[in-house]
Write a protein that binds this DNA or RNA. Sequence first.
DNA 1: TCTGGGGTCCTAGGACCC
DNA 2: TCTGGGGTCCTAGGACCC
Length: 425
Amino acid sequence: MSQNIFALVDCNNFYASCEKLFRPDLANTPIVVLSNNDGCVVARSKEAKKLGVKMGVPLFQVRELMQKHGILAFSSNYALYADMSQRVMSILEGLAPRVEVYSIDEAFLDLTGVSHCKGLTEFGLSVRQTIQKCTGITVCVGIAPTKTLSKLANHAAKTWHKTGGVVDLTSKDRQRKLLALLPVNEVWGIGSKLTKRLQQFGIDTALQLADADPKYIRQHFSVLVERTVRELNGESCIALEEMAPTKKQIISSRAFGERITDKQQMREAISEYISRACKKLRGEQQQAKHLTVFLRTSPFSEKDAPYSASKSVELDRPSSDTRIFLAKAMQLLDSLWVTGYRYAKAGVMLADFYDPGVYQPGLFDDPIVQRESDQELMQLMDKLNTKNANTIWFASQGAKQNWSMKRELLSPAYTTNWSQLPKVK
DNA sequence: TCTGGGGTCCTAGGACCC
DNA sequence: TCTGGGGTCCTAGGACCC
């Protein structure tokens, strides 16, 4: 049996790097990228990391530090990041036989067989150079016999600069050396809760986890942790998935730019989320039967009374028609809404998906009539709104939307909008 | 006095990821 | 004053059945 070989390619400081691509004047400036609503820090350039800005901190907590060191902030510009991501991924698809796009800034490659033609480190370096040259984005490459180990190899490539950004972890010796150096929480799949529990069992390093008995781990933790133990020992349990599996749920939710206390505004917000979620659903060529609406106050506020509630409904039959979900969502909202709270966030979730035309109605249900005009209307809406966002919308979404999110520090859509292309003077 | 056991299905909640 | 959004999977426990 031939040995599996995976590579994990991960873009360095991806969002921050994207922001810098079109701002050469900021080459050595520390910058951070903020979450929606400019709430907290979700990406940092290497200069900002060095100055001690932590991942995930609320912006207001680091304002002083940022001012002191001249750290610049950007609102997240997903149009830009998604476009740059696609460029990186399509290059990778030309370089490796099989590619799994794992997230916006990382991909697993299947390198089984590649070592017959080329050294693995050499291959990794060429990936790095090609991406750098074609997109300006720097990536690190970790190579190993399992996905979990390739994640750790990538971590090593990022952490130690003398690796040149590529680490080949196919040798057992090197695996054990690296595992001994890393705390257990660096392992893919081991989060903060598991780290604490593992420590109670005397497991502090990745190597100690690798050396634990899988059956014992299964007993005291879960199959997932057992799988991780096996992966750390070079036994590949998590396969490469080239085809993205079909989604099982679609969520659209946002924290509000300002707290909502008025029901009409909440109706607008929920309407907006419904129409986004349904557009996404149609984009997936799916229909949904289950709808959930939820709303809540801020969990961080000490002086606001807490309130959090959600309610769901099953449709008679699957649909992707925005109007049907809008009507149901407004009914759910009526039963969830309590006047007097300062709402901080709300959202909707679609689930229980069917391929169009597959649903089997019950014996006493009305027969399904697919009106072509309904589908055409939705298609037309999507077409108009894809070309130019918010060309048309439902009246219930509201025109002013003063609850919508804050993005005060947004950079231009350099690569996806003709009028915002960078100019060379 | 003594009060079964095993199976399925569903849901809520928890944990993880980026 | 100000704390993201969108996912997946597993487990425990309750309801229900025979």
